[in-house]
Nucleic acid binder design. Structure first.
Ligand SMILES: Nc1ncnc2c1ncn2[C@@H]1O[C@H](COP(=O)(O)OP(=O)(O)OP(=O)(O)O)[C@@H](O)[C@H]1O
Length: 662
DNA sequence: TTCAAAACGGTTTTT
DNA sequence: CCGTTTTGAA
């Protein structure tokens, strides 16, 4: 056991130097935050004010003062923010301590649950069901319950059932109360939904699986029901640090509170950047943090170090329209920059050519692609731009939107691996079983009812002797494939993928996607390449579910000198920054989104606030007059968020540069 | 019970 | 417009 105090002596020699460094790198408030010794600490400040910076320097300072890295726990909601935290800490320390726990709530939850799975009726190799898995399972349950097909449609459309269940769990409400409150028009299904939930929990358990929400809820349950385990983690993690705290939901706050009993808890956030209400983020977590932790030290940071005064002014003007935000000052002392530019273009193709032309000019002015991002409310706003970028050979990467591994062929392939990893995974079995010729859901149901009783369904299948009512050839092909990969399950994942293709899936791919065979096969090859980074099947599978895929399905133009342009949803861009930012699709109906009901307009505006404050020097926004997109093609005019800005905030430009550039 | 063809219908944002 | 659901033949 390390002695913290004797460590202090050894580090004291270095202290003057380190503290001088801290003083140089941080302003007064940030320094206060980074070095405070309070048991509870809240950093509440606007964008670009250095919250993440202060948090990361605090972590580094703790380590410098003798706290072991494994005594720190760094948490946040999104993968992006977690990555940013880790990257900056690594830059600061020169390396990322291997024994430091830093990640999203979900990934840390998974890590803890793997260690104590048996206490929750699972084993350490449990599968993690993503939203698609959950939806598939719910659908399966509904059809097993003989639900009228109209009703089933109502429940499944837009993932209603899954959403209600998830909302209830994440906000700690009873289904009944939630339905009465928010979905009274579906109240007739209450009984059915409750019945479904019981079966859903049961099937997950039988599959040795947790869903996303379980990673939080079961973590909380583990700590609540097993105080001795909670104590162990409390003793270990002397400091818990949370970034983007405004994104946390009630369950995550409870987990933090459990640590708060014993560990010192430090959180940073900005109520004006709360954009995850749809994931049940609870703004009260940050607003009432000082009351909950009475001895809490509150640190405010008001200087924005990221953006020019012009950009900060526009952002302030916009968020000023939100009545409910905490009043916060935010100013920039950076040199005067260009006013943000609003371009009126005729349609989305012209918008693409506008962006391309600007990028061209920026590059000529020495701004590399790495320092440029195009942000948007929804990923359906990008195809025209992507097309234009490909034509011009500009290398780009997209973030957010449909994930690579959500595509059917990738999920198919992963299902084989999931079975080997966790033979109880019903979803995975079903997925590849019904791919086989002559093998359908009905046949699978019969077969599975026997197979799932086996201690190890995979061993039982391999041993043979299981006879499906139909599709015997398909079943045998499947079993021999599984045999082949099970035998070599400790080999490199990429070689397992080859085996799957050779034995079984290549034929299926040809059969099912005659027109897209090549394209999809390439996708699978990319998956195999990606797999080479992992040293085990476990970590590969877990990374694919919990971390968004780090690479695109189809490669854009190859990366050249200035790196790659970033295309990202605004949600995924939070916490990041670029020299130049474009916000495209600034039209009523797109942003704010059509689906926005009255009370979430404020949230959309916060989203705009986040987008605008990503830029260091140049901010471009575009809006079109005509909208050929999808049915209706109603042109609803420029976004409210542009119209409500004082015109002194930005320059207006009519972009009528023929479509020749396109 | 499976599977292909025809009809349908519906779109944020992330873990 | 593309994926999902329904329909009906084998
Ligand atoms: N005291 C400082 N001196 C120099 N640069 C600073 C200082 N504080 C912050 N910065 C820089 O300002 C930028 C924004 O900081 P940071 O990302 O930590 O802010 P944030 O408050 O977390 O922003 P957001 O809320 O938008 O995520 C970073 O480039 C950071 O390095």
């Amino acid at each position: 056991m390390y002695d913290q105090y004797s460590m202090d002596d050894t580090t004291r020699k270095e202290e003057p130097q380190w503290h001088a460094f801290l003083e140089k790198e941080l302003n007064l408030q940030q320094y206060e935050f980074a070095t405070a010794e309070d048991r509870a600490l809240l950093g509440l400040a606007g964008p670009g004010s250095g919250k993440t910076r202060a948090l990361v320097y605090r972590a580094a300072n703790l380590i410098k003062s003798g706290i072991r890295p494994d005594q720190l726990l760094l948490l946040t909601f999104t993968n992006k923010a977690a990555g940013e935290m880790k990257e900056r800490l690594e830059r600061l320390l020169g390396f990322l301590p291997g024994d430091l726990w830093a990640g999203t709530f979900h990934s840390i939850g998974a890590r803890i649950l793997r260690r104590h799975a048996s206490l929750l009726g699972r084993s350490a190799n449990f599968s993690i069901f993503d939203e698609d898995d959950s939806r598939a399972l719910l659908k399966q349950i509904l059809s097993s319950l003989d639900v009228d097909s109209q009703d089933r449609k109502l429940l499944m459309q837009r993932g209603f059932l899954g959403r209600v269940i998830s909302q209830a769990r994440n906000s700690d409400l009873k289904i009944k109360d939630l339905m009465e409150e928010e979905y009274p028009y579906r109240l007739e299904f209450l009984g059915l939904i409750e019945e479904t939930i019981v079966l859903y929990e049961q099937r997950k358990r039988e599959s040795n699986a947790f869903d996303f929400d379980d990673l939080l809820l079961c973590w909380l349950k583990l700590f609540e029901q097993h105080p001795e385990i909670r104590d162990r983690y409390q003793e270990r993690f002397l400091h818990v640090l949370v970034d983007e705290f405004q994104d946390t939901n009630i369950i995550q706050a409870r987990i933090i509170d459990l640590f708060g009993n014993a560990s010192s808890v430090c959180v940073v956030g900005d109520d004006a950047q709360s954009i995850y209400a749809f994931r049940y983020a609870h703004i009260g977590n940050i607003l009432s943090f000082p009351e909950k932790y009475e001895s809490c030290r509150l640190v405010r940071m008001e200087q924005n170090y990221r953006s020019t005064p012009q950009i900060v002014e526009l952002a302030n003007a916009s968020i000023g329209h939100n009545r409910e935000q905490l009043p916060k000052k935010l100013f920039s002392k950076k040199p005067v920059g260009e006013k943000p530019l609003v371009a009126k273009v005729s349609d989305s193709r012209q918008e693409a050519s506008f962006v391309l032309q600007c990028i061209w000019e920026l590059q000529n002015n020495g701004i590399p692609l790495d320092e440029i991002a195009v942000l948007y409310r929804s990923s359906y706003l990008t195809p025209e731009l992507e097309f234009a970028l490909s034509r011009k050979g500009i290398s780009y990467r997209t973030y957010g939107g449909v994930k690579f591994f959500q595509k059917a062929h990738i999920r198919d392939l992963l299902a084989y691996l999931r079975i080997v990893h966790n033979p109880g995974d019903e979803n995975a079995w079903r997925r590849i079983a019904v791919l086989q010729k002559g093998f359908g859901n009905a046949t699978f149901d019969k077969l599975w009812s026997g197979l799932k009783e086996q201690v190890n369904p995979l061993d039982a299948a391999i041993a043979g002797g299981i006879r499906p009512a139909r599709g015997k050839n398909g079943w045998e092909a499947l079993c021999s494939t599984l045999t082949a990969i099970a035998e070599r399950k400790d080999e490199a994942v990429s070689s397992l993928i080859d085996i799957i293709l050779e034995n079984n899936y290549d034929d299926i791919l040809r059969q099912n996607y005659p027109d897209q065979y090549e394209e999809r096969l390439q996708g699978i090859e990319r998956l195999a390449i990606y797999a080479e980074r992992f040293d085990s099947l476990d970590s590969f599978l877990e990374s694919l579910v919990l971390e968004e895929s780090v690479f695109a399905d189809t490669a854009s133009a190859p990366e050249a000198f200035g790196g790659q342009l970033t295309l990202s949803t605004i949600h995924s861009a939070k916490g990041k920054e670029w020299d130049t930012v474009f916000i495209i699709g600034m039209n009523q109906g797109h942003f704010p989104s059509q689906r926005t009901a009255g009370n979430s307009l404020d949230e959309e505006r916060r989203l705009f606030y986040v987008a605008a404050t990503r830029a260091r020097y140049y901010l471009y926004m575009s809006t079109y007059r005509e909208d050929f997109r999808q049915y209706g093609s109603v042109s609803e005019g420029p976004s409210l968020f542009l119209r409500e800005l004082p015109s002194s905030c930005y320059k207006l430009m009519d972009y009528d540069y023929g479509s020749s550039y396109y």
